[in-house]
Design a protein around this nucleic acid. Structure first.
Length: 196
DNA sequence: CGAGCGATGTTCT
DNA sequence: GAACATCGCTCGT
């Protein structure tokens, strides 16, 4: 089986996390499952800066079954379940530096019928405009935990370079002191699928 | 259309 | 038993 798009090489992930969070904007997130291929352009990300970041799961180098993959080399898939939804991160930072980039929104590209079916009953604008929605749209589950973004079935490929990138505080991390004000959320300026 | 809030599953203490 | 990197209702404008 060969991928429809050429996955980005592992070198792409070897860079500072704040830089990677922006470099991921405009890239294609692709999932090729037995049901078919679905993909979208990444339009919103958040950086989680590891041991010193109170909002990160790996704050204080907290190492548990869940956070274990954050300590691995960059370019791995970190999925976890939040309430009833799966969220997906790109592991960043060198080995033993537990940083990650949360993918918060996509602009749907391929497999629109499949995405529509998975997001049954929702308007197109609500298919992928949030971290829990886009995983449902692409069929991403916690089974994807630990995979490599450089190979099938779940991978990231080159897309378009955004015209402009905006920056602001992260979302949904109210109880994390000063960390909640850090401008570590990035999005493609003006894209309608950005979560807010 | 915005704020408020209940449902929900998993992980960790 | 609490905490949550959410979502999709409801009810108010």
């Amino acid at each position: 089986m060969t991928a429809k798009h050429q996955p980005l090489p592992i070198d792409f992930y070897h860079r500072p996390t704040l830089e990677l969070a922006q470099a991921l904007l405009g890239c294609l997130l692709v999932n090729e499952t037995p049901e078919g291929l679905a993909s979208g352009y990444i339009v919103e990300t958040e950086a989680y800066m590891g041991a010193g970041d109170r909002a990160a799961h790996s704050y204080g180098n907290r190492r548990t079954k869940r956070t274990e993959v954050m300590f691995a080399e960059p370019g791995r898939v970190y999925t976890y379940v939040m309430h009833t939804h799966t969220l997906i991160n790109v592991v960043s930072g060198a080995t033993d530096v537990p940083e990650a980039v949360l993918i918060r929104a996509l602009d749907p590209f391929e497999g629109l019928d499949l995405i529509s079916a998975r997001r049954a009953g929702r308007k197109r604008m609500e298919w992928t405009n949030g971290p829990g929605k886009l995983t449902e749209a692409l069929g991403i589950t916690r089974e994807d935990y630990g995979r490599k973004f450089t190979e099938l079935p779940l991978y990231i490929a080159p897309g378009v370079v955004p015209a402009e990138i905006s920056t602001g505080p992260r979302i949904g991390i109210e109880n994390t002191g000063e960390a909640r004000f850090r401008p570590w959320r990035f999005w493609v300026t003006g894209n309608p699928y950005v979560s807010r």
